[in-house]
């Protein structure tokens, strides 16, 4: 390509700047990979070994730490809770979000701009700043210490951006397709279900990743709504665990590895989708 860096024809000063940045990027790669590697390595060591030499590799390979954290530390339950809450919230986000996107992008009516703006306002408003009224609402609905409280709040967190991204895409689908389906006897729901949704599949994949990562990682709302240990999600469980086992570094490193591994494994297989999905909101 025309603008690839050509080493031979580049003046030395410029070359030095290129190398400086190349070196900086390599340093950042090391700064990412080594701490993660060290975390995994430490999860197979004993706390005494970690304290004696944090850089050493594990001497004996045993899943004992993992067994302890997963079963006795409650991480199996935290993990399951996170899966349940994330999956349910995401199902609601995708279903209601895509329906609303269809409703604002495929019909022309006087209120459509207002409805669209209401959804948009949800992107701009920081939900954390509303924690007091949210707490009161959740309490009055009798949802304290239930997964339902998290599911509702996460759905509210995800729907606005879903409407924004999907409506943007659905607007570009030609109206002829819809008219043809209508002549074939489709009602509005089957147009949504059988014409628009299948065509939107790639955008839906993006939106799924865009919302799933922050919902899976969220800590703030579980912290406020969930006190009962058996209902805690992974990030909140991690925090409780850290509070109890702070001194036992081997177990804390193991817990951190368990918390980080699922995301890392998924990323290894679909890194392109993750990058595209996460940056989808910032790039129209």
């Amino acid at each position: 390509m025309t603008f690839d860096i050509k080493l031979k024809s580049t003046p030395p000063l410029k070359l030095a700047v290129y190398f400086l940045f190349f070196a900086l990027m390599c340093v950042y790669v090391l700064l990412i990979l080594y701490p993660l590697f060290n975390m995994f390595a430490s999860s197979f060591k004993t706390t005494r070994e970690i304290f004696q030499d944090p850089f050493s590799l594990p001497t004996a390979f045993s899943w004992d730490n993992y067994r302890q954290v997963w079963f006795e530390g409650g991480f199996s339950r935290y993990f399951l809770n996170s899966v349940t809450v994330t999956a349910t919230s995401m199902a609601i986000v995708i279903l209601f979000g895509s329906m609303a996107a269809f409703g604002v992008s495929r019909y022309k009516y006087r209120l459509s701009t207002l409805v669209y703006l209401l959804f948009l306002s949800g992107i701009m408003l920081p939900l954390k700043a509303a924690i007091i009224p949210l707490f009161l609402i959740v309490r009055n609905l009798g949802l304290m210490n239930t997964h339902l409280s998290l599911i509702f709040v996460f759905a509210a967190m995800g729907i606005p951006s879903t409407v924004f991204i999907l409506a943007g895409f659905m607007r570009t689908i030609p109206r002829d397709l819809e008219d043809a389906a209508r002549i074939d006897g489709c009602n509005d729901f089957s147009i949504y279900r059988r014409v628009i949704m299948p065509l939107s599949a790639p955008s839906i994949a993006l939106v799924t990743i865009y919302n799933m990562v922050p919902i899976w990682n969220d800590f703030f709302f579980p912290l406020v709504f969930i006190q009962r240990d058996r209902l805690k999600t992974l990030p909140l469980g991690m925090s409780t665990f850290f509070g109890q086992f702070q001194i036992n570094w081997a177990l804390v490193f193991t817990a951190l590895s368990i918390a980080i591994l699922p995301m890392l494994i998924m990323y290894l297989f679909m890194s392109k989708y993750f990058i595209k999905g996460m940056t989808a909101g910032a790039l129209k």
């Binding site: 279903l95 209601f96 329906m99 604002v104 209401l118 306002s121 007091i132 609402i137 509702f152 509210a156």
Partner: peptide, 25 residues
């Protein structure tokens, strides 16, 4: 009725959990 059917569920969640809390604050 179709428009309402598509828009209402999402709008209700956003209204109760984002917009209402703003005014309550």
């Amino acid at each position: 009725a179709w428009i309402a059917f598509f828009v209402t569920p999402g709008l209700a969640i956003v209204a109760i959990f984002i917009i209402l809390p703003l005014f309550m604050s």
